[in-house]
Design a protein around this nucleic acid. Structure first.
Lengths: 334, 334
DNA sequence: TACTTTCATCGAAGCGGTTCGACGATGAAC
DNA sequence: GTTCATCGTCGAACCGCTTCGATGAAAGTA
């Protein structure tokens, strides 16, 4: 493989001159530049990434940490991965995707060995064990998902509290007084998935303020438990006139279950949920729902991360940014 | 950050001694080793990946190339990504995930800059433009998906021809004589997704041999076109007694459509398909199907790739390995 | 004309590792 | 009592690139 030295020899200049021609950090005469360019083309030269990383202490690689929990709905995670990858590439970065079961040690591995310039964490939980490792790292990080302690970290998440209020308000405004709520599965709460209780608590509080009823239940993540739980929930409160589904796996299964039971939407039951447009298309979901904007979240996280990488001082204090929920009407309420 | 020089000073040995202690490539006295170990712990030393890569010409990173076509069913791709990532990690490699729209230039970028030790290509098409770039690369590659020209490349794929024969045989054995076939969407064929015609041609050939009818149709990849096309197909051949669905997006939508039409499986219609167990679980698919084994495919590809990386000479000639299809009965035929 | 800038380029050092050859000290073999 | 391996360690070179300071030439200034 051709090195910068080979190019220098071919163009009859020094290696440093080639380097400056490549980076543009010092003026190079037109004539020399042309000799260098043609030498590069002739030899098919490409800068060696490892050598450049060593010399500049910049790898131009971002770590992307995610875990596919057995009990989780995989398609949902994917929506975050793509925008992260795309945005990184636009900004000149590649993605080192790490799916280790042991998150903290994965963080340590890629940061302490200087493989990456920064880290994006997906699906951050309330007391995420990866954060300790992250705080010890020299590289900046951006999180998707709200941890209990955001100190020193850039965090991006949907405003689940506001989302809950919007949905309850919407249903209340339509006259609903008994509303079912399917939260994420219990193990998500147990694991510390804060979006579960942030949403539920806000919904309950809002309901209490209006003096109406929101009946919370845990969802399930795997069939056939999902359908079974839906049956149970629908049977438990036959007088409920609306349902809020805050769980990907459950909402994906809902159309079939409602069809099965002969429940017409919105005539017999008003349905609202939270999911991204993409997700809704994949699963043909026809429900009025809060857009969860995984693309916006992933994009913002990467942008902020890169800002911090390029400008460690000037990027300012840590940011916690909640994306404002938007309700997309699809006619599933009345 | 501590370097190997810092460790050497702390342990009062030379840098090379530390390196040998780390790699075990030369004997080191117990006493010295202990001094080095405690120095490492005290300083929190980790080998710098870039420097090591430069010195050894090994990055311990594998490139994973995939494209999420707008018109494709994203959840299907994910099944391949995870086993690749997991297997790589088991073998000591990290994954550089590249989702560039321009595949060939992505291949060039990561290979010519020596960012990776090898490349895994997902969803390879018949005349995949990435292969040319791959053949010019110094790093070995493993493909998932069968290209027209496999020369010099390790290829892993399901035996779609055999899968088609198994399904036709199965239905023929049960007495079916008119069988619908939903192939992948037309644009998949156009793009060169060989699995589409490999399956279809084998099915048609088999049917011809038996003197029965297989009626092929293109599927769709996006709702509401999927459902619409299913209606059209089912209406077109009311006398057909069985359907073979060779398309992820379509099979995911099938239960709702059949339910809608009041078609009972298998009483009114026998249904067979191809999908992985995971996929079937995610979408609650109750059909007898060929297991597509994405985990096996991904795992084999990585294993072979690593074998070739570690042993460029000894790994032998390029391999084309077809995974044998396995039929999992779920009672959707009779 | 002499002095200072600016321009274009070069040489050398440094980034943080690995590895080859050498070397003194032991212990074994003859 | 030599001779030879083996063991444990060191120094130096090298991997391929970037960057700092220096240098000579050309151009601008007084």
């Amino acid at each position: 493989m051709a090195t910068i030295g080979d190019v220098a020899r071919e163009a009859q200049v020094s290696r440093s001159t080639v380097s400056y021609a490549l980076s543009g950090k010092r003026p190079i005469s037109l004539e020399t530049r042309e000799r260098i360019d043609s030498a590069i083309n002739k030899l098919g030269f490409t800068v060696n990434a490892g050598a450049r990383a060593l010399a500049t202490s910049q790898t131009m690689v971002l770590g992307l940490l995610l875990q596919f929990h057995e009990d989780e709905f995989a398609p949902a995670m994917l929506q975050y991965v793509l925008p992260v990858s795309d945005t990184a590439r636009e900004l000149g970065y590649d993605i080192l995707m790490v799916t280790d079961v042991d998150g903290p040690s994965a963080v340590r591995r890629i940061t302490s060995s200087e493989m990456v310039d920064g880290v994006v964490l997906l699906d951050v939980t309330h007391a995420d064990p990866r954060l300790a490792a992250l705080r010890e790292a020299r590289q900046p990080a951006a999180l998707v998902g709200l941890p209990g302690d955001t100190d020193g970290l850039d965090v991006f998440d949907l405003d689940f509290g506001e989302a809950a209020r919007m949905l309850v308000d919407h249903l209340y405004g339509l006259g609903h007084r008994e509303i079912l709520l399917v939260s994420p599965p219990k193990h998500v709460f147990d694991r510390g998935g804060a979006y579960g209780w942030r949403f539920r608590d806000a919904a309950l509080e809002r309901a209490a303020r209006y003096g109406i009823h929101v009946f919370p239940y845990y969802g399930e993540s795997q069939q056939p438990a999902i359908n079974r739980s839906l049956y149970t929930i629908l049977d438990a409160r036959p007088t409920a006139t609306a349902i809020i589904v805050h769980n990907d796996a459950t909402i994906a299964a809902l159309p079939a279950v409602l069809h099965d039971r002969g429940v017409r939407v919105p005539d017999d039951l008003s349905v609202v949920s939270l999911y991204s447009q993409d997700f809704g298309r994949t699963f043909s979901l026809p429900y009025t729902a809060i857009e969860t904007s995984p693309d916006k979240l992933g994009r913002n996280a990467v942008q902020q991360l890169v800002r911090r990488i390029l400008n460690p001082e000037q990027a300012g204090p840590a940011v916690v940014k909640f994306i404002a929920p938007e309700l997309t009407g699809r006619g599933s309420t009345r």
